[in-house]
Design a protein around this nucleic acid. Structure first.
Length: 484
RNA sequence: GGCGAAGUGGCCGAGUGGUUAGGCAGAGGUCUGCAAAACCUUGUACAGCGGUUCAAAUCCGCUCUUCGCCUCCA
């Protein structure tokens, strides 16, 4: 089976074939950096992280571009209101550059915790003003855009397919639903801004042929995606809420300039809800990642996200997170046990699981099913380890290799170095081993003397600092829970 | 009002015209000095009403409900 991707543009799954064999160009809408990242960002970037990892695993050379929006994104509708970055700068009594730098760093910090790989190129909108201006000049030259009083607008009537991604193709009908008539220089209310003249006191402004001003929000993605990935890209990803107007505008302005298809496969991830209702800043229920990480292992968050499909809504609740914590621990435990238990004679073939895992991922990145396969594998491994023959060394190594590839490299839910039960460095690990050896020896003596008060004290005190003791058939073992 | 998605067992969450999703919780069991952990076993659910079909939770229609977008949002 080969890879199938759900293409939002045609609303169906289709076989993935990149423009150039063996190469994949992918552009994902990045964050507007005016606040700390929340769970919604996590869902989006974890989802596309797995897309990129799976494409690479499938043998493609992937060029992944994800922008940083640091200008042009306004607080109200597409073309009115204050710039988000400027507004935050005003609130924090500093300047826009500091805001965007600060929150960009914060964003990557959170993504690193979630084990999200960095994009190959992370272009900032403010660093690509000349490219954006050039695009506007071409649009004016070929009649798709017009200038009024220093503002430049894209004429949606000049692009027949406008709105095809979101299904909003009838511009006249759409106007019937408009609540407030805004005064504007636009020829048609659906036209959107490519360049805006800076009002008095606007902090971010650049010279252009039309006015001293700033670019419209939609423009940056077209300009930067074309610059780094070419006129037609394979995959463009983003949140569903950006289908309209953002992505429809991107299509219109890009294809009007190049005459070429802008994107071959559109991918849109769904939203996060909190206890069943939409998560939003205005609703004051958005889940800040930094706060979440205080209570919850970031990899549990990642696992939680991947347990649902990227095109499904994901409902956040404490109960759901708790369930994920326990579930992920089960997978960790299985790998630990497989790596540490003595090898035996029986053969164990991971091949059927590999095939099922691959089929799931090839079916539009179906991570919930892929994870279910890992749980089935876990059950099978445990059964084999429980049997008297155990698992042969070769079988164990093959199975561990698959676990490493699937859970660590592709899904990114298990740490690289967890096989040593989370000890952070070799040196302190050795010391800890020695200390634990002494403690377990003392405890064993106490138990032999039926001094259970002492043996339980050792167990409980260790448990309090995150070290768990297990009395099993094979003897006593311990694991460092806090280190995972 | 327009565009779109969805309603699955206590909870989360896949899938699908006829075969067990999976996880968590619950119940029973193995192990143990007792525990904990771990492991094993266990659930026959798909909003309602019609229709198509040998067969539908899965397709079609209607109804009800929820959610997203149409205004910034990943």
């Amino acid at each position: 089976m080969s890879l199938f991707i759900y293409n939002s543009l045609i609303r169906t799954k289709e076989k993935f074939e990149p423009l150039r064999p063996g190469m994949v160009s992918i552009y994902v809408c990045g964050p507007t950096v005016y606040g700390h990242a929340h769970l919604g960002h996590a869902k989006s970037y974890v989802s596309f992280d797995v897309v990129v990892r799976w494409l690479r695993h499938s043998g493609y050379h992937v060029k992944y571009v994800q922008n940083i929006t640091d200008v042009g994104h306004l607080t109200d509708d597409a073309d009115e209101g204050e710039d988000k970055i400027s507004k935050q700068a005003r609130l924090e009594k500093t300047d826009p550059m500091e805001i965007s730098q600060f929150y960009t760093r914060s964003f990557y910090e959170d993504m690193d915790h979630l084990n999200v790989l960095r994009p190959n190129i992370a272009p900032a909108a403010t660093a690509h003003i000349p490219e954006q201006i050039a695009l506007v000049e071409r649009l004016i030259a070929n009649g798709h855009a017009y200038e009024v009083n220093g503002n430049v607008y894209f004429s949606v009537h000049s692009f027949p397919g406008y709105g095809k991604l979101s299904g909003r193709t009838d511009q006249e009908a759409l106007q019937s639903g408009v609540r407030v008539e805004t005064r504007s220089d636009k020829r048609h209310p659906s036209d959107f801004a490519l360049w805006k003249k800076a009002e008095e006191g606007h902090l971010m402004q650049w010279n252009s042929p039309w006015s001293i001003g700033y670019p419209g929000w939609h423009l940056e993605c077209s300009a930067m995606s074309m610059k780094y990935l070419g006129e037609t890209i394979d995959i463009h990803g983003g949140g569903m809420e950006n289908k309209f107007p953002h992505h429809d505008c991107e299509i219109a302005q890009s294809e009007s300039v190049t005459g070429q298809p802008y994107v071959r496969y559109w991918m849109h991830n769904n939203m996060v809800t909190v206890n069943g209702v939409k998560m939003g800043k205005s609703l004051k229920n958005s889940v800040n990642l930094k706060d979440l990480f205080k209570e919850t292992d970031p990899l549990v968050i990642r696992f939680f996200i991947l347990q649902s499909h990227y095109r499904s809504q994901l409902d956040y609740s404490e109960a759901a997170i708790k369930a994920s914590t326990t579930g992920l621990e089960k997978l960790r435990e299985t790998r630990r046990r497989l790596a540490e238990q003595k090898t035996g004679s029986a053969l164990f073939d991971p091949e059927p699981f590999i095939r099922r895992f691959t089929d799931a991922m090839d079916d539009d990145f179906n991570t919930p099913v892929a994870i279910a396969v890992l749980f089935d594998l876990s059950k099978a491994i445990n059964a084999a380890l429980d049997s008297s023959e155990g698992i042969s060394e070769e079988s164990r190594d093959n199975t561990l290799a698959f676990l490493h590839s699937s859970a660590t490299e592709i899904l990114g839910i298990l740490n690289q170095n967890e096989q040593s039960t989370g000890r952070d460095s070799i040196e302190t690990g050795k010391k800890l081993d020695g200390i634990m050896e002494v403690l377990l020896e003392l405890r064993a003596e106490a138990r032999e003397n039926k001094d259970f008060a002492l043996s339980d004290k050792i167990r409980d005190r260790l448990s309090a600092v995150g070290i768990e003791i297990k009395d099993t058939k094979e003897g006593v073992s311990w694991s460092n829970k806090s280190g995972t």
